[in-house]
Every structure is written in structure tokens, then in C-alpha cells.
Design a binder for these strands. Sequence first.
DNA 1: GTGCCTCGGTACCCTGTGGTAACCGAGAAC
DNA 2: GTTCTCGGTTACCACAGGGTACCGAGGCAC
Lengths: 112, 112
Amino acid sequence: MQDPCQAREVLGIVGDKWALLIVRMLKDGPRRFTELKRAIDGISQRMLTVTLRDLERDGILTRTVRNVMPPHVSYELTTTGQTLREATAPLLEWSITHLPHIDAARAAYDNR
Amino acid sequence: MQDPCQAREVLGIVGDKWALLIVRMLKDGPRRFTELKRAIDGISQRMLTVTLRDLERDGILTRTVRNVMPPHVSYELTTTGQTLREATAPLLEWSITHLPHIDAARAAYDNR
DNA sequence: GTGCCTCGGTACCCTGTGGTAACCGAGAAC
DNA sequence: GTTCTCGGTTACCACAGGGTACCGAGGCAC
């Protein structure tokens, strides 16, 4: 079990509830904090802040502050972030094709 | 934000600490409970049980009990599970190539 | 000048999740 | 008869994840 240790690490990076959603939101260029908050349904201000910080720390995205009033902070994927997004694409495709099947499996399991 | 809702769901399935490790362990055929427990370093008996149940519920793997003493229970990927493993392969590859870079980014960030 | 708005973020508190440890049941080995 | 194995279940407990409330500084209306 050496590779799987990396699997565990990669989940530490993208495995939380919001990271992939944020990465996905940034695929078409930089976005501002409030823009992300509005677009990602259900995320709290705190969780957006925390997740963005983590992703910045991991070098997935960059945080750019323009020191004006009201504050203007924008987030943008790094090249590493771009490759990450590409790597997660198959998983997203998988989810689109298989989620109905999984919902069915769940329903069947719960009905036993 | 409709696709990302699916991203959230897929994380509900494979996004926990252990699910991907288990899926990976099963790639070469069925494994027994204790075999998995020994192979996946650090997993507790409880978490192995819980995670296996969840994956079974989602139709990712099957649980087969041979009613003998001592008990013999084996787990095997379903075809859905196989496709999931294939879909996660790029992500694992990404992690192998980028984790050093990410560790470096983290260290740099923390040293500021 | 005094409310009130926006943007981005922090402080605090609570809940749920995951981990540890103990126990179980039935046969088999010694 | 004691102890081991396999595959769990249950009770308990700490910690992290996540929600809510608040903040600060400028702009703008009145």
C-alpha cells in the first residue's frame, strides 16, 4: 500500500465537499469571492474562505487582492489547478452516467 | 450550477477517506474482510465495516457470505465499481505527478 | 453626520463523524 | 478447557467540520 497513501493525500486536497466545485467554477477564468459564494449553492461564507485558503496553500489557485474599497479579491486556477481540473473530468463524467444507477442501487438496498 | 451538484454527490460516494483505497484494493479481484483490514494501513475495523456497507449500498461492490466457521466474507467490485476505478485512475496519476509540487507549495505557504 | 449598504473575512459554538476499545459467537486447534 | 480466528457490533469520546453572528472601512443617500 504505497500508491494508496497518495490516494489518501489527494483526497485530503480535493476530497472535501467544496473543493471540486470551486475548481470547476474557476475553469473559465478568475472569479471574485462573492461571485463564487453566489454561484455555489449552499456554501457558507466560512467554508468558502476556508476551502479557498486550503486550495491556495496547495498551489491549486492564486488569490489576488486589489486594495480598494469595497475590497476586490479574485481567485484564479494555477497551471497545477488546471491539470487537476482535467484529471477530475473523467470522474465527473462517470458521475453523470452512473449516478442514476447508484440511486437505484441505494433505493433497492434500503427497501430490503 | 447543476453539474456541480453531481460533483457533490459523487464526493458523497467516493470522497471519504477510505472508499477509494478499498476500491483500489479490489481491482484485482475479490478480497476478504481481514485481508482488506491488514492491507489498508490505519483503517479501523469499524470504518472498514461502515465504508464497505456504504459501497455495497451504492452498488459499487458486492458482499458474499459463505456460511462456515470461521466466517468467510468476500468483497468484489461490481461492473459499476470497475468503471468507477477506471474513472479515478487519472486522478491517481495526477496525484503521483503533482503531489511533490503540492507539498512544496504547502511548505512555501507555511513558511511565509 | 448618520444610517445602511457591500465585500471579504474572522470568532465562536455546536453537532456529527471518525477513531479506540471492548465484546460476541461458533468452531477449531492444542 | 483454554485460546485462537473471522467478521463483525456496540459504547464511548475527542476533534474537526460547518453554521451563525459579527466586524471594518469606505461609499452613498438623505
